[in-house]
Amino acid sequence: MISGSLAKRYARALIQLAPSPTQRDKYLQNLGDFYAACKTHDANDPSGERDLIKVLAAGHHTLANRRAILHAVLGRIGADPNVKKFLELVLERGRISGIAQIYLHYRDLVDELAGRIRATVKTATAVDPTTTGRIKKALETATGKQVLLETEVDTELIGGLVAHVGSYTLDRSVRTSLDKLRGNLRG
């Protein structure tokens, strides 16, 4: 884990290595794949000591070994050479444990440059594609940007939906209405 400003500086550095939108998207894909690999957890290792991110961040392994592991993983996911060099630099600087923050900041920067915004919509039951399209269109109209929409099912909502767009939350769920009613009744 590293600080947000530091992660943002690394994300900007990677952006500068990718002048074109295609490269940025490719780097984002590589970084996302690497991040997903780092999040992979072995069920037979409850302590998580053998997780990829733990091994790469562990100081008791030699840097050469960790670099070799990194190269192997990046080769497996077919990472761009610039991404390889970038992650190698992050590893050498001892910031590899902050790869999640770096990835998220990089993703935000790429989305911003591409005029995209990510949104998550939670509903009590799965929504059909038509409804999803309407929700996406409404969000694009409201934000003026292309919306990358993810949907989740949360039965606790009872009904309605909750959308998270950037730092905004658009809530019209029955759960929230009941909670508000409960709060009002309690005074």
Binding site: G159, G160, L161, G166, Y168, T169, V174
Partner: peptide, 26 residues
């Protein structure tokens, strides 16, 4: 559920998120 989604879509479509200001159900 459809009625709630319709209301939400109508409300969000009328809002401006991250442009000028957010309103309605935000």
């Amino acid at each position: 559920q459809r009625r709630l989604v319709d209301a939400w879509v109508e409300e969000v479509t009328a809002a401006r998120i991250g442009q000028t200001s957010a309103s309605g159900g935000a």
